[in-house]
Structures are given as structure tokens and as C-alpha cells.
Design a protein around this nucleic acid. Structure first.
Lengths: 104, 104
DNA sequence: GCAATAGTTCAGTATTATTGAAATATTGAA
DNA sequence: TTCAATATTTCAATAATACTGAACTATTGC
């Protein structure tokens, strides 16, 4: 089984967060996770666009995960992804709000 | 003479700004420009570290410029670079402040 | 066990970054 | 006005990173 890499809250870096969210697909994924009523979504459930290759989608989730922006757990046959809002916000107060304000 | 490319204020994109500032060298350059008493600095005057190749530095200034974060004009033998704080702030109010708050 | 489903990993190609070397532009002095 | 010095850009090559199809792994239900 593959184990997901999640940095500790204090290891989240500004450049990691900005780099992860500087890709419009990843920004949309993150925004979708935040907007989800359930609080978490499968990878395919959070796809920003249908025609993206599975491997590319998987790559984007990994970048978000390793930047500390999302947490992924395996739940049955799918992954559940949720935004680490509180962690990121405690590390960089106000940053996510300021960025997401402009995400359409 | 080389002409610098500066996007209009309304053409500045969120992904461009985040991508440009997701590089720690560029974030330091931008921060240095903002902190400069004169309001503008030459490329070498805003170098984030001495051992960087001139061509790399030039590349970073171009990324910042094309993202709309800085304005460059040729003044004599050197370039004068200044942060486009107002333009970026009008386009994305509060964004720069939220990011730079965490720049050491 | 087998097929279906959801993602990951791998390996090749494509894009982007970094750099040394050469080129360009400007200034000031001989 | 020619020449050297300075500041920066452009070019071309290499290094690193991103994207993708194909193959693989893990889980569930039949």
C-alpha cells in the first residue's frame, strides 16, 4: 500500500504553498475541496476538468499534499482528500483567504 | 535596444503572480524592491544572493516583469526596477500584503 | 478467485530553469 | 570618435520538472 506524505504543520513552507496554488488546476482542486459540503472528496470527485489524464491528476494531488495543503487518506477503493485549512491558516494566517478570494 | 514587456494592470493574472512569487529568489527580489528607500533598484542592486549567474538573475527579473509585479526602465547603463504595488493591489486587493507578511 | 473501480508508479517525451559565453547598449575618458 | 568599462540580455546547451499512456497495486463485491 502506498503511504501518503504529509508535512507537519510547522514544515509547511510559503514557497510550497504558493507553488502548489500557482497552477490553475491545483487551485481549482483546492477550492473544490474547500467548497465541498462533506469536507472531503475523492480524486475524481475533485477533478477540475474531465479530460485530464489520471496520472496527471494524481500528480497534482501529490503536489498539493506535499505542500501541506491537503490531507489524503485511503477509504476503501478511493482516496478521501480534504483541505488542511486550519493547519495552513495557523502557519500563514490570512494567506489562503487572500488567495482564494480571487479564485473564480 | 531591448524593449521590456509589461502587462497592463488588467492583464495581471493570479497564477502569474503566485507563480512568480513561489520562487524564493524572486520573492526576495520583490521584497527588496519594496523595501528600497529610493523605490527602485538596479538588477544587481536587488540581487538576492551574490553567487547567482547574471543570466539567471536576468531571467528572474523577466518573470517578475511579465507577471506584472515589477516595472523595468533602462536608465543609462543600468535597469531601474520598481515594484508595481498599486497595480497589483488594485487587481488583487490584499494579496501582496498577505504574502509578504511571511517573507523573512 | 475474478472482474470492476480508484489511484499510483514507471518511463518516455515535452516543457521550463539554469548557466557560461557571446552580444548589445550606454557612459565617460583618451 | 574610438575605446574600455559596466550592466544586462540573448543564445545555446544542459539540468530539472511536468505530463501522459501503459502497466501495476489495492479494495470491494460477486
Amino acid at each position: 500500500m502506498s503511504r501518503f506524505v504529509h508535512p507537519a504543520k510547522e514544515d509547511i513552507t510559503l514557497e510550497g504553498v504558493l507553488g502548489a496554488l500557482s497552477d490553475p488546476m491545483r487551485l481549482r482542486i483546492f477550492s473544490k475541496l474547500l467548497g465541498s459540503r462533506a469536507g472531503s472528496l475523492s480524486c475524481s470527485g475533485a477533478t477540475p476538468c474531465e479530460q485530464m489524464a489520471k496520472s496527471t491528476l494524481s500528480h497534482h494531488f501529490r503536489v498539493l499534499r506535499e505542500a501541506g495543503l491537503i490531507r489524503t487518506t485511503k477509504q476503501g477503493v478511493e482516496n478521501l482528500n480534504s483541505a488542511r485549512w486550519d493547519d495552513v491558516n495557523e502557519r500563514f494566517p490570512g494567506l489562503l483567504k487572500a488567495i482564494l478570494k480571487f479564485q473564480g
